[in-house]
Nucleic acid binder design. Structure first.
Lengths: 207, 207
DNA sequence: AGCCCTGTGTGACTTTATCACTGAACCTTC
DNA sequence: GAAGGTTCAGTGATAAAGTCACACAGGGCT
């Protein structure tokens, strides 16, 4: 059954009320949950799949800020929900996802009625803030070759990755050419094999 | 009288209860409110003055993440307060500040009892998240000379700024040498005059 | 004066970003 | 399956930013 742990903690009657007002929305790969400037429809609770949140700067460059997986909350939406301001970022579905959209009224009621719900929201906020702080540090001070290597390392289990250099540049917040050159370097060292839109790890890639 | 707008919204009895449990703490310039790794004592409500929050990366470099002024809330503390994890960042007082420290119990009670308090907390969280998102964009994509120029521009009213190049480098998340060279460049263009620990704007600095 | 500490200036070099362009891989459409 | 268009990838040249190493200046102290 579709569930989200922040709803599990609700006392029976409140949970029934919440669930009766929610139906899971299905989003396919590539679908945009929201764009920069969009007003906020409600608080998304991600049930499964994967959604990445990225923003585009004045310069026209984009960078991935963080991703949300199963059982996570799109905390970024709360601010917009409260103030009515539009989003600064956009959310793109990576792996097909199912999402509950908690409307403002229900959100307020849950915040009012359940200490556990509040705790869940606060924890989620804390994690997000932490993610962003670490990202700032990484972008400001870490070398690009290390960051790219780590990104690859985290996905070495998949054997072959399907991604373009441009998309990878957005992941890291750099330019496509930089990614191309670094990947070529890794290929020369025998760590991976490159093909159009694909990266294949060799056996000599450390794991 | 010392006050913070998030407490103003509380209904009379709750406000009296809150204020009776709080006394303003005075922090002087240079005092550290908390360090990386410290456990969280409570939620700081900044009544006046100015506090900067900065973090130090693995590389040993530091960067200022954001600042808090009068009537702001150190939202970063909430995550630590909830999870019991230590801070990732440190908070340094710039202008002498007075601060209420809201302990965990009182915070929980206010969250439980007041929708306005919750709203204030959520808005503060939203602002912080926005600040950090903009910072990521800035660090990732903006040129250092522009960023330094903007930083100076925001302080042109002061006439003379007392700051070392090293401190300015931490503001922008770059290296001291980069700041030195860029400032020298500005000086050559006649925008400012440099002295040990000081930057003086000339009349040709645009304002 | 002599010494020390902190802050600044700068050359040499590496890494990253930007610009401009080439060619390869894939997708249509006929 | 050849022709033409589109998306991806590779690469040289150059500029910006970060790193390393070191010289020297300003100001405080003995």
């Amino acid at each position: 059954m579709l569930q989200h742990s922040i709803l599990e903690t609700l006392p029976g009657p409140l949970r029934r009320e919440a669930l009766s007002g929610l139906q899971p929305l299905h989003f396919e790969h590539g679908k945009i949950l929201f764009r920069a400037g969009d007003p906020c429809q409600g608080l998304p609770l991600v049930l499964n799949g994967s959604v990445k949140v990225q923003m585009t700067g004045l310069s026209g460059h984009s960078i991935v800020l963080y991703r949300m997986g199963a059982d996570e909350i799109c905390t970024l939406s709360i601010g917009c929900l409260m103030t009515g301001d539009g989003f600064r970022a956009e959310a793109v579905v990576e792996d097909d996802a199912e999402v509950y959209m908690v409307p403002r009224g229900l959100f307020d009621r849950l915040m009012d009625q359940s200490a556990d719900f509040r705790l869940g929201i606060m924890e989620s906020y804390g994690r997000r803030l932490n993610d962003l702080m670490l990202l700032v540090e990484e972008v400001a001070f870490r070398r690009m070759d290390e960051r790219l290597f780590q990104w690859l390392e985290a996905r070495v289990g998949q054997g072959v990755i399907t991604i373009t250099h441009q998309e990878l540049a957005v992941e890291l917040g750099t330019a496509r050419e930089v990614v191309s050159r670094l990947l070529k370097e890794f290929e020369r060292k025998g760590l991976l094999r490159l093909a159009r839109g694909k990266i294949e790890f060799t056996d000599s890639f450390p794991r």
